[in-house]
Design a protein around this nucleic acid. Sequence first.
DNA 1: CTGAAAGCGCTTACAG
DNA 2: CTGAAAGCGCTTACAG
Lengths: 349, 349
Amino acid sequence: MSRNTPQRRKVTLADIAQGCDVSRATVSLVLRGSPLVNSATRARVEAELKRQGYVYNRAAANLRRRTSSSIGLVINDLGNPFFAEFAAGADEALASAGYVTLLGNTGESPVRQQAVLNSLIEHGPAGIILSPAEGSEGDQVLAAVGMHTPLLVFNRELPDEEGAHRWDTLEMDNEHGARLATEHLISLGHQRIAFFGGHRDSSSVEQRRRGYAGAMRDAGLKVDPAWLIESAPTRLEAARQTGALFARDPAPTAAVCYNDAVALGLMLGLTKRGRRPGEDFALTGFDDVAEASVCVPPLTTIAVDPRGLGRRSAELILERLGNPETEAAYTIAPVRLVVRESSCPPSSP
Amino acid sequence: MSRNTPQRRKVTLADIAQGCDVSRATVSLVLRGSPLVNSATRARVEAELKRQGYVYNRAAANLRRRTSSSIGLVINDLGNPFFAEFAAGADEALASAGYVTLLGNTGESPVRQQAVLNSLIEHGPAGIILSPAEGSEGDQVLAAVGMHTPLLVFNRELPDEEGAHRWDTLEMDNEHGARLATEHLISLGHQRIAFFGGHRDSSSVEQRRRGYAGAMRDAGLKVDPAWLIESAPTRLEAARQTGALFARDPAPTAAVCYNDAVALGLMLGLTKRGRRPGEDFALTGFDDVAEASVCVPPLTTIAVDPRGLGRRSAELILERLGNPETEAAYTIAPVRLVVRESSCPPSSP
DNA sequence: CTGAAAGCGCTTACAG
DNA sequence: CTGAAAGCGCTTACAG
């Protein structure tokens, strides 16, 4: 017998009701654990449920009750371990709360993001957690999500009308993280510190640059505009931009990197130019990816606990389901400095 | 106005029908693109759809049509980049085919796997792709999945009744991969080669050991049982087991590692004992994780294209939906050797 | 404590 | 080409 042959139709409430001579209503009450049902009746129904191998049809129940038991989780880059961890954390917390996760991966494409949202919304999720694709826009997103489904935007700012507060937000504390990294380098004795990598128009780059600039200002240190170096936030592009650090004299002795990928690329670029990261040039990352602790030299960085952020995002969207009326929340998650060997004191001047 | 206030109920087919004076049936036909509808009527309906911001309720349609537009994707460890890539590939292919992905992450716990499957199945997926948690069993899984939902098992063998073929299977070619790695080391001149890491009772370890042993046999080389070294498949445990390689004289000059994590751990262990991987000890990995190309020395390994596997798994489950009657398929995906610096010739004897 | 009836938002023969 | 009617598998007042 092939397992995939539906030899008999799925068993329904009606089958159970008929099988033990009660009404469908009674079976429904048993399923939902109502105390109204006589315990003898309950036992009979439960035995029949087991005997026939009944599987609850949650979609039908949701339709009737006008409820939903799913949450959409739309991720910009699931292949990136940071977002994979985030997704794992969100899924874990959603599952504990009895929700199923409707996954969508956009691969950083705003076009795919629209397609994914349009498809997800037809499945009637109770809410949507969105880690937006780079370059996507609030109006577009809302056109797909509509006015009936709570939305939590994670990680990046989505351009929104001034003061509209049309969704909840969860971000990590980019500004504070960059400040911590910068202060750490300053405390080691560095004075010429660059901010390396990322595109200026990204909200997280902007926030991290602000933290960096704040720390420099507070320490009475000048920032040479030539020390603000852009690159795509990838290892390869960062390696290619290494030269820009040393274009002008005197060159920086340290760099706060936009993220770990950029920092790892910079290490590569430094090594190629005969510099030894962690010995004659100091640098810090952001994210604390798995590789950060095992690369050579190990990377000083800002740890952000993506799995915890995922869990938090689930909590926030579930809270919102309970309080649809309250004002949109803007939540900032803490980060912490992890000191490793890549952040050395300046070598003798 | 708070966006989350449902100021009016969601708009339904009936609203549209009323709004442009046709029956619900006609609206339904327009939605499903039926050629039966007069083009003037169609245009009127479509305008009304847009005007009221109608969102299709796929769950209701699925209930009525007794169809499903979702596929369950149950992953043993989403935090592992290999499985995250797999999930991304599967989601991508499922989305293209018009399905939504119901995600479940089990974190390698058979208990959570049961809970996840029991929850997923209530949402009526058309099929389930399962990358099983270590130690989970076929009977358990089937008890949750039931007889009505096609199942594709990825990556690991799930204990099954002899010859029952109760599900489709997709695995990578573990045996061939290990054989390629072993033959590569042999071609470099190694004769004493260990197989390092993994638990013997895991099906993939068994398959990789078989490939290793076959290559050794074919080259006329003996395998000392002391060269089959077990460890948990993690970096840390592998590092701890390094000593076992050198317990007996003469020691191996190379090792085929169960996977990249183990290989990276072994590198660490070797370095701690004053050995230089890639110079006086050769080793290979399996998986080609991102780190493999950037660690020092870069790791020779077996590339398995997890994203491609994900896409393939989606194709397989969708094919199965179309052919419920045909025999269960056992698919083996190809792998390839990637040569990097960690596999050096033997140092002078 | 239990059952009959209506209805969630769709689709689909069947008439006309 | 369009509409009236029944029904997918559930739940929920409402009677009794």
